[in-house]
């Protein structure tokens, strides 16, 4: 079990532990099945080209799911994710598959975040963060924010 993060462990400016992700065409197929989003924009070359995006793009909701993963990993099982928002500003293109199980060489994405605010309200220890998904060129394609409640070492109730 991972070490639990406490309210007292973070300050404004603290970094959310970064999380690496690799989007592949295979992952997009899995995501389409799991989420029920079968928009051909995410798997069909001609359709994507006609929509003006060139080639299939990563689902925005998959990048949001990555940001959810970023936050739930960081806050641990005693933390609560209260709010998560993000904007799909930049398009991301998945790596193609080199074999049935491994992708071609290429881009790696990073989910990152920093603490922007911490405060206590109604006995809850609240932490707000800026979060984002960054592409291989360090551009924030998916900026957002998250609000979490962390356990406190001082307020054991």
């Amino acid at each position: 079990m991972k070490k639990q993060l406490y309210y007292e462990d973070v300050e404004v400016g603290s970094e959310v532990t970064p999380l690496a992700k690799i989007a592949t065409t295979q992952m997009l197929v899995k995501w389409a099945g799991a989420s029920g989003d079968f928009n051909p924009l995410h798997y069909e070359d001609t359709f994507a080209a006609n929509q003006g995006v060139g080639s299939p793009i990563v689902h925005g909701a998959l990048k949001r799911a990555w940001l959810g993963h970023l936050m739930t990993d960081w806050i641990g099982e005693q933390g609560l994710l209260k709010r998560l928002s993000c904007q799909y500003r930049g398009m991301d293109k998945p790596r193609k598959m080199a074999s049935m199980i491994s992708p071609e060489e290429g881009e790696t994405w990073w989910c990152k975040g920093t603490v922007t605010k911490k405060y206590i309200e109604d006995d809850q220890h609240i932490v707000e963060c800026d979060i984002w998904v960054e592409n291989g060129r360090e551009e924030k394609t998916t900026p957002g924010t998250a609000t979490v409640i962390l356990p406190s070492r001082e307020a054991k109730s």
């Binding site: 989420s35 029920g36 989003d37 689902h59 925005g60 909701a61 949001r64 928002s85």
Partner: peptide
Amino acid sequence: PPALLCNARAGTGRGVQMKSPFLRALAGGD
């Protein structure tokens, strides 16, 4: 996980009459 909600399987946007004069569409944010 938090990702279980807010997608087609979870019914997000189901049954609403979204109209637009344009043909191209993208998700803007959630």
